[in-house]
Simulated scan of single mutants.
Amino acid sequence: MIGIIGIVVIFVMVFGGYVAAGGKMGIIMHSLPFELAMIGGAAVGSFLLSNDMSAVKHTLKDIGKVFKGPAWKPADYRDLLCLLFELIRVARANPVALEEHIENPEGSAIFARYPRIAKDHEAVDLICDTMRAAAMNYDDPHQVEEVLDKRMETHGHHAMHSSHALQNVADALPALGIVAAVLGVIKTMGSIDQPPEILGKMIGGALVGTFLGVFLAYGIVGPFAARVRTVVEEDGHFYALIREVLVANLHRHPANICIEVGRQNTPHHVRPSFADLEDALRTLKQEAA
């Protein structure tokens, strides 16, 4: 919702201010389709030229994050801590019993209790692969921790590609606007014998290209890129929480301490309260008993 509000504010303030100052929308509206076709078409073409199809699909999908916001809500962080607590408790009590959960998470009763997390392949794979590696390398927990760090770094780099791709388009738009404006000037010079009132409209139409390129770059595409980056970073805290808890588990801290380490390393605005988490864990213990 806030993304839509932001777009509305941009258009109202820019064009509303222009009209309030005595500007006429007629010249802009007359030139807009042609300038938009040139600038927008060139921007789309450069975007396709600089990215492969996988990156294009990924970027188009991530644009929705501008309006949807972060995928993970505060309740999801609490559920994640509960899920990790259950898995760690099973691993400590009976390592063999853990295998059925990490080898087949789709059929795991533990994962089934947290459907939103179970649908996220990256989160599930991160948990299962790390706990599997830990089971094979308990003599060297730092090795597992290093592999985990590199994996998260790779995932973060890939997740940021959409933001970088959009920012590249935003950086190119002002120059593409100048290209459209120059073409408008060339057109105007071809009609130099026309009266001033006609030439004035033609020059005004040419300047629409410069305006449109700068407006789209700094008013729309650039903020889109920044918002996607912010949302990706926000969602990255979810996977960082998995890292913190599993690293604590690698060092054989008690299960409750592992969960508390993860809770305290969660950003404040999505961090479950100590009492709320304790109630959730107490319920799990009672169900297990």
Rank of each mutant, 00 (worst) to 15 (best):
I4T: 06
G6W: 01
G6E: 09
I10R: 00
M13C: 14
G17W: 06
K24I: 07
G26R: 14
I28E: 02
I28R: 10
S31K: 06
A37Y: 07
G45N: 08
S46R: 15
S46D: 13
L48R: 10
S50G: 07
S54W: 09
K57I: 10
I63K: 05
G64K: 07
V66H: 10
K68L: 13
W72N: 03
L83Y: 02
E86N: 14
L87S: 05
N94G: 03
E99C: 07
E103K: 13
E106Y: 00
E106T: 13
R113P: 03
R113V: 00
R113L: 10
H121A: 15
V124F: 00
D125F: 05
C128N: 08
D129Q: 14
A134H: 11
A134D: 12
A134T: 04
Y138T: 11
E146D: 07
V147K: 09
M152N: 09
E153H: 12
H155P: 12
S163T: 01
A165Y: 03
N168G: 15
D171V: 08
D171G: 11
A172R: 11
P174K: 07
G184W: 02
G190L: 01
L199M: 12
G204A: 09
G205A: 15
L207S: 00
F211V: 07
A217R: 02
A217N: 04
I220E: 02
V221Y: 05
G222P: 05
V228W: 03
V232F: 05
E233H: 13
F238Y: 01
Y239E: 10
A240N: 15
L246R: 05
P254L: 07
I259L: 02
N265A: 14
N265L: 08
S273M: 01
S273T: 13
L281C: 09
Q286N: 14
E287I: 12
A288C: 10
